[in-house]
């Protein structure tokens, strides 16, 4: 049996994510556990480095969405294996918490789901509440989960008002300083973001990751 050093394991993990080899990635996560390698390093230098590489390949046009999404899911699967062994659980590796949903009255879910998946892959703890979710419910979840970011998707001009409603309720309840609210969906323009007094919007999943990172100074 070949004994792998930490650095070698990290490299293999990166490769397994980039090559989308789920079995291998899972095996490596288990191996890292067995060998008691520093798990924070395993996540940062292994899995996170891997998904960042996948993201870069996508931005360079080498990779396509199915590869990006698959990479993100393999990464998630491996994190699920490692997290129970971290002292403080997911908190320890989380870059921040995001509650995301498509607003009430609107069932357009695909864009929101892609954004949620990518955020997860980039180390954020994401609570995806699904589609057609009332503003009150989104806020309640954000409060309960102590979220940093509230992400709201709307694809219909008629449901966009729900995005504004979120901010209005947060204002009323004096919760505005607790969260950053970001918006997305085809009808969302920068003028709308301004009108809502939201903290930003992004037109695709990688941009959404960059936005969240910049809002949380990560």
């Amino acid at each position: 049996m070949i004994i792998l050093t930490g650095e070698e394991i990290f490299k293999n993990i990166v490769d397994s994510i980039v090559n989308l080899e789920e079995d291998k990635a899972v095996e490596l996560a288990n191996e890292a556990l067995k060998k008691k390698i520093n798990l924070l390093e395993v996540v940062e230098k292994g899995f996170s480095a891997g998904i960042r590489k996948v993201g870069e390949l996508w931005e360079d046009g080498e990779f396509f969405l199915p590869e990006l999404m698959r990479g993100a899911q393999i990464m998630q699967k491996c994190l699920d294996i490692l997290i129970p062994h971290l002292q403080k659980g997911s908190e320890e590796i989380s870059h921040g918490k995001v509650v995301i949903a498509t607003i009430e009255g609107d069932i357009h879910s695909i864009g929101k789901t892609i954004v949620a998946t990518m955020l997860r892959a980039y180390g954020f703890e994401v609570y995806d509440l699904g589609a057609d979710v009332p503003a009150e419910k989104i806020i309640q979840e954000a409060v309960e989960k102590k979220a940093d970011i509230i992400g709201v998707s709307a694809l219909l001009t008629t449901t966009m008002t729900g995005q504004k409603k979120i901010i209005e309720i947060l204002r009323e309840k004096n919760l505005m300083n607790k969260f950053k609210v970001i918006l997305g969906g085809a009808p969302v323009t920068s003028a709308w973001v301004e009108e809502c007094n939201a903290h930003g919007s992004a037109e695709n999943a990688i941009e959404a990751v960059k936005l969240v990172k910049s809002l949380l100074n990560k």
């Binding site: 396509f64 969405l65 864009g111 892609i114 695709n204 999943a205």
Partner: peptide, 13 residues
């Protein structure tokens, strides 16, 4: 009997 199907663009989503 109608529709508006589309293939998903795998680069831009």
């Amino acid at each position: 009997w109608g529709g508006s199907p589309a293939v998903f663009d795998m680069k831009h989503g």
